[in-house]
Design a protein around this nucleic acid. Structure first.
Lengths: 186, 186
DNA sequence: GTCAAATCTGTCCGATCGGTCAGTTACGGT
DNA sequence: ACCGTAACTGACCGATCGGACAGATTTGAC
């Protein structure tokens, strides 16, 4: 067998897992699917990652850290400045981490409780607060939820061209920011 | 065994399947899960529905018909009237069919091709057209996609109280309509 | 009551799931 | 050349998957 460097194979596994998880869903993707895609054995895959969950967690950690950092950055702001900064940073994160965002919003909530990723619901709650400008009005929260999920899913959908391949990243980014700010009343 | 009427059991199976599919995802829900929830055997379940796919299709047919009908109703309209009517009807459908909408937008696109449900992508495309007021501008399409997925996911999330249980259906409905219209520039 | 049809279930099937493990191969330091 | 260790794999495990099927049970028409 052609031996690659350990780090390279690890990276290839993560790339395949990210793509397949995002396309078919976490539960619907088997370890064998990933191994076949990467060109190694399932046992080799489990040599680099102790189980399937570890693979998912390693994929999601960067984006959850980024989202948490985002919240810290906008924390001192208030009013319209808060909303604008949150939307802008959120869209940037969503476009950069399209595939992972999809896992975060579509797969994770439907998985049986994962104690290692409990930061997510709290992050979601704090993000909603920022999007409403710290309002507690129910309809403002509904609007914020629509914006949040809409951004996440639209960025995710753009990955597999469901949106149409004529949409550039610039249009995606600016279209999302503008629509989100309008939806939130700015 | 306590024999219920055939129609009643069929209905109970559909109810359980709708709830479990929506909560855990279609692939992650087994026929045994549904049978246990309903209180019958897996074999009995397969007596009423020829396979797992048939269950999903029967759950989705009403909402896809409704969405198709919605499009026919607004077809003669144009401009702002078109957008307003589409958003209003879309939100109503999403709130009424919360659970099914979730399957439609989260599970179906990630399933291997289902020829029986090919009407869906076309319906999505036509809905996007209505939401943009028949515009082909890429950023308008992005906004429409954000609104469409946002409405679907927000209505779906409200089913398992992820949004917070203090949001009434009225707030949900009106909050979605207002936010969507603002996002679309009205 | 009788009997055919409808309803229901226990049991089995092959496939695949995530995961383990013993053993093989290749690599780097000495 | 040698050897410890890291990298890798085939074979296997118990569990569970969607589904098939023969037979038991219940029902309704007569």
């Amino acid at each position: 067998m052609s031996p690659r460097s350990s780090a390279a194979l690890r990276g290839n596994i993560l790339d395949s897992a990210r793509r397949l998880f995002s396309e078919r869903g976490y539960e619907a993707t088997s370890l064998q699917d990933i191994a076949s895609d990467v060109g190694c054995s399932k046992a080799s895959l489990l040599y680099h990652f102790k189980n399937k969950d570890a693979l998912l967690i390693e994929l999601l950690t960067p984006v959850t850290r980024r989202l948490a950092g985002l919240l810290d950055e906008v924390a001192p702001l208030a009013g319209e400045a808060l909303v604008r900064a949150t939307v802008s940073a959120l869209v940037d994160s969503a476009v950069e981490y399209r595939l992972e965002i999809r896992l975060l919003f579509e797969d994770l909530p439907r998985l049986p409780h994962r104690p290692e990723l409990n930061l997510v619901p709290d992050t979601t709650e704090r993000t909603l607060d920022c999007l409403t400008g710290r309002s507690r009005d129910p309809r403002a929260r509904v609007a914020a939820w629509m914006v949040l999920t809409g951004i996440a899913l639209t960025a995710g959908a753009s990955a597999d061209a469901a949106l149409g391949d004529d949409v550039s990243d610039t249009d995606l980014r600016q279209g999302l920011i503008d629509a989100a700010l309008r939806a939130l009343g700015h």
